[in-house]
Write a protein that binds this DNA or RNA. Structure first.
Lengths: 215, 215
DNA sequence: TGCACTCAATCAATCGTTTGATTAATTTTG
DNA sequence: CAAAATTAATCAAACGATTGATTGAGTGCA
């Protein structure tokens, strides 16, 4: 039946996403993916044409779900600049667990030196998030809520970069934290609230500081 | 002569570093490296044991000088905790931006979770640097210089993560900053001092804050 | 029968590594 | 000192394994 075919393709994409995320494009083999997915190896080429076609299919599926997710970021006029930013941070940290293996894929692709159509597409989509936060920061500086000499681009790099570091280098962050950051229970119950608290305190100390912050 | 042998090994390491950085560990082949370096393929195994051994040799050469630098800072009794940390940040920013293509490689390999042998060794080497900074932070907390409720592991994640984000996602950070972060002149003359200033101000605001920082 | 799907078997290419022979350099020995 | 013995360095060739991809025979359903 048609639905079964779609389910099977989707299942292959699920497995491929995981394996590509763990091992990279070169490190992942088509045999491994087909074996893990429980399908014949020839199915990958039959469905997706090639290994690269499979990789692109994984990406496009994720990106389309990303785009709809981004649409419900609204601008609440009743909130202060800081409350908006705090809510952004909370929401952002909240989402790191759901897509964390895909996040690794995205960052690895973006770090490749060659400029591809794919990385341009990813950049464009991620910039929506970035610009959302940038707008909040700029507004807050304009209305005097935030430190006027704030380095906005670097502050954004800190928010995204800190999270990326924890997720993308799990070996190191696990050693630092004393727990396996890949353990979902620990992630949900301990690390998530901890990162939220830390990130807001860090950013607030930098942005909303009324003593001498110039040296 | 002995010096020639060292020069040849060094030349191989130079070439290997470039190719590994461009293509990743899996993407780079031993044939490509030996061909580019103008040596017989067997020499790689003769000198470095294996492809992985070659990679680790490249890696250790890169990081060893930074490691001793960090240790010298940490062991300097004449500096305050904050001055030590500030110097670490300065040196770190100074260093990574020069070697940014290799840094990207390291992060790519680390983000692949399953390759046990290689990533474990990289982790082990990088942890020396992490622990050096952790020691400075812990000392500063103990002697009252730093905020007592500092989340040390996450603060470290911020230092490393912010820098990683800037250089690993050059497309995005270039758009944010309004300049191409891959332009070496801009990197050297503008971005580097800017990141140093920002990073120290950010960390200081978080660590050395005497007003209410608990909410 | 016709069509979409599935499979084991196999393809050529490339991978990292090993081998055995050869040359260059060094040390030991008479 | 010179010949001999030993070690180190280098090379072309080939190793077995694995890679992504293809084949052609078969499957079951419409």
């Amino acid at each position: 039946m048609d639905k079964d075919k779609i389910d099977k393709k989707d299942h292959i994409l699920d497995v491929a996403e995981k394996i590509f995320s763990d091992l990279g494009f070169d490190g992942a083999s088509t045999r491994m993916i087909s074996g893990e997915a429980g399908v014949n190896m020839a199915m990958l080429n039959y469905y997706f044409g090639s290994k690269e076609g499979l990789f692109l299919a994984v990406f496009e599926r994720k990106i389309s779900s990303f785009q709809t997710l981004l649409q419900n970021i609204g601008n609440d006029e009743s909130m202060s600049s800081w409350d908006k930013l705090a809510k952004c941070i909370d929401n952002y940290v909240e989402r790191i667990i759901v897509n964390n293996c895909f996040q690794k894929l995205i960052n690895r692709e973006l770090s490749m030196s060659k400029r591809s159509e794919l990385s341009d597409k990813i950049t464009q989509i991620l910039m929506v998030n970035v610009l959302e936060i940038k707008k909040i920061l700029d507004d807050g500086i304009k209305n005097g809520t935030f430190f006027k000499d704030t380095d906005t681009p670097l502050a954004i790099a800190t928010i995204f970069g800190t999270k990326n570091y924890i997720i993308n280098t799990p070996n190191i962050s696990s050693l630092m934290l004393g727990h396996d950051v890949r353990d979902e229970k620990y992630l949900e119950e301990q690390l998530k609230p901890r990162v939220k608290t830390y990130m807001k305190r860090l950013i607030k100390a930098y942005l909303v500081n009324d003593n001498d912050n110039t040296k």
